[in-house]
Write a protein that binds this DNA or RNA. Structure first.
Length: 594
DNA sequence: CGCAATTGTCATTAA
DNA sequence: CATTAATGACAATTG
């Protein structure tokens, strides 16, 4: 991610050229365009999501089991957590109410608390409990090392050592909330970002810094308080992550992303925990959740402020409602695209993949691309924050829309060890990754990345004119960027217009065809009616002729002779009276009579 | 590789 | 005048 920013102008030019020449199709945009299609696919997507979630849970559990052995090895103290330093911090937390201390609590502390609180249960009762921490550790380790290898290295395990969320705390509602939260594209993106960062650095700042732990705390603690955290909005989660990040970053010297990654790992672990615990101890503590939630939410909100760049901050920085609208729109729209993409993702790769939820090739590619052009990526967005030029507002704006993409991307990273490794280690692989990513990204997205435009393509295209201008006014873009933004907006709108136009054209064609069919039917009906009428007319004429002959034949002159048909004819006047008219003298006789 | 169907883009026009 | 939608035409992409 950072690399992207650092890239020299020359490299950027090269990337831009590549992007310009390499064209990709943006599936998401298309889907967004067509509401009709979206509707049709919504059901399928939901089903797929559910299936994916189920798969994820299964994978997590399996991994946890596999990891348990390792964790047990680490369990020297009898506790799952190998790390000693965590304990002291934990102890105070144990007694204290989670809600209030949530801010101060670290992920490790939470884990320790859980372990201490439920030491017997975890060890004795359920392997699952043990597994859960192991799983989280494994996840983190995978993130760091490689997804394929479930066994975490001691270093990697340390984060996982933290006690899993208390089973009691988790309730079905919480689980659902977690699932929803995790399923959120934004969160996923953040997670992915963090994951990537962590992989690169392979350092665990979380343990040391309590602040970082806060997000974890929200996730892991199974208690009511945690439940509250679950209820927290995705944005809040983001904030929590961000907040944790800043503290971490300075200490480690690593980017905030690393911290986030750890948190993400923790979150994943929490998820698994939730699932596990949920089964074991359901609903014991539904009461007090509201209070806890409030506390946590407040804590969360507070945390972001501390962080240098948090999503919240970004939002606040954002120009205004317009951004929020765009965000919301993006979020809402994205799910569909995500779901569609998610189907592509291969859960089989690893449990992580399952957790990641929806991974798409495009996502993977994008992730890989990050080095070259990554504005669209969440990670890039964050990186942008660090960049002086990129305004917070830009970040805030971009975040909502981008998150979905990142979601997809992140999972894959988790899933694919090779890619991750390539990311971190080999710049060479980046080219391939770029190509892949380029393939998935739309041309304009690639171009935007190449020029490091701080907006998402969706925002550029879909924002109302006023909001768009406001957004543009908050960033100083060079001529090339301005031109590109204008072109992206023009092309994007035209693309939608073309799609609508074609859709309309097809509808017109269908309508005309149906009209044609109906007209053909009517024609057939009229023809048959005509033939029938002709037949009737013919019959009537025949009958009339017979009647005429019959009447004419009955006529007799004074001498009793019949009139010759050649000399006389019967004619009917307008008043209905019938006259015998001589054919030659017709007019005269009629005149005479009158 | 060729082909047809899609889809994206450009140019133009009208609102 | 700027913006946008609509649309034909062409190009690129995809299966």
């Amino acid at each position: 991610m950072m690399e992207m920013e650092v890239m020299h102008s020359g490299q950027q030019d090269m990337d831009l050229i590549d992007i310009l020449w390499k064209q990709d199709i943006d599936l998401g945009a298309r889907r967004e365009v067509f509401d009709y299609n979206h509707r049709q696919k919504e059901h399928e997507l939901q089903r797929q999501r559910q299936l994916e979630e189920e798969k994820k849970l299964h994978l997590l559990r399996e991994q946890e089991k596999a990891l348990l052995a390792q964790l047990q090895l680490d369990e020297e103290t009898g506790e799952y957590i190998p790390r000693a330093p965590l304990q002291p911090a934990v102890t105070p937390l144990e007694n204290a109410s989670f809600t209030e201390t949530s801010d101060a609590m670290s992920f490790d502390e939470c884990l320790l608390l859980l372990a201490e609180t439920f030491p017997v249960e975890e060890t004795e009762n359920t392997s699952v409990c043990l597994d859960t921490p192991a799983v989280s550790a494994a996840i983190s380790s995978n993130m760091m090392m490689s997804p394929e290898q479930p066994a975490p290295s001691p270093a990697t395990l340390s984060p996982g050592q933290l006690p899993p969320p208390a089973p009691q705390g988790m309730s079905p509602d919480l689980e659902e909330a977690w699932m929803e939260i995790l399923s959120l594209p934004e969160l996923q993106e953040c997670l992915n970002m963090q994951m990537e960062d962590t992989l690169e650095t392979t350092t665990y700042p979380l343990q040391d810094s309590p602040e970082i732990q806060n997000p974890n705390y929200s996730f892991y603690p199974m208690t009511d308080e945690k439940a509250n955290s679950l209820n927290v909005d995705p944005t809040e989660f983001m904030n929590t992550f961000d907040s944790s990040i800043p503290s971490m970053a300075p200490a480690d010297g690593l980017s905030p992303i690393k911290v986030k990654t750890t948190e993400l790992n923790a979150n994943l672990g929490a998820e698994s925990f939730c699932n596990i615990f949920y089964q074991n101890t359901i609903l014991e503590e539904s009461s007090g959740q509201h209070e806890l939630e409030e506390n946590e939410s407040a804590a969360v909100s507070n945390v972001p402020n501390e962080a240098p760049f948090t999503p919240m901050d970004l939002y606040s920085l954002s120009p205004g409602d317009a951004f929020d609208r765009s965000k919301q729109n993006l979020i809402t729209e994205q799910p569909d695209s995500d779901s569609g993409i998610s189907t592509n993702a291969s859960p089989a790769k690893s449990a992580y993949g399952s957790e990641s939820f929806r991974c798409s090739d495009s996502d993977m590619e994008e992730m890989d691309q990050n080095p070259g052009s990554a504005e669209s990526d969440y990670s890039e967005m964050f990186s942008l924050n660090f960049q002086p030029d990129d305004a917070h507002a830009a970040i805030s704006v971009s975040i909502p829309s981008q998150q979905p993409n990142e979601h997809e991307k992140n999972p894959k990273h988790k899933v694919d060890p090779g890619e991750e490794s390539s990311h971190k280690n080999a710049p060479f692989t980046k080219d391939k990754a770029k190509k892949r990513s380029n393939v998935r990204l739309s041309r304009d997205e690639q171009r935007a990345k190449a020029l490091k435009i701080p907006f998402t393509v969706d925002m550029i295209i879909n924002l109302p004119v006023d909001d768009f201008n406001e957004m543009m006014s908050k960033h100083q873009l060079n001529e090339a960027q301005l031109a590109l933004v204008r072109d992206i907006r023009r092309r994007g709108k035209n693309k939608v217009a073309a799609q609508n136009c074609r859709k309309r054209k097809m509808e017109n064609i269908v309508g005309l065809e149906s009209e044609l069919d109906s007209l053909k039917e009517e024609k057939e009906r009229l023809l048959s009616e005509k033939s029938k009428n002709m037949t009737d007319l013919k019959e009537m004429k025949w009958q009339l002729n017979n009647l005429y002959l019959e009447v004419f034949g009955m006529l007799r002159d004074e001498k009793g002779n019949s009139y010759s048909p050649s000399e006389y004819s019967l004619q009917q006047s307008t008043d209905g009276s019938v006259f015998l008219v001589p054919r030659i003298k017709k007019t005269f006789k009629s005149d005479d009579r009158h």
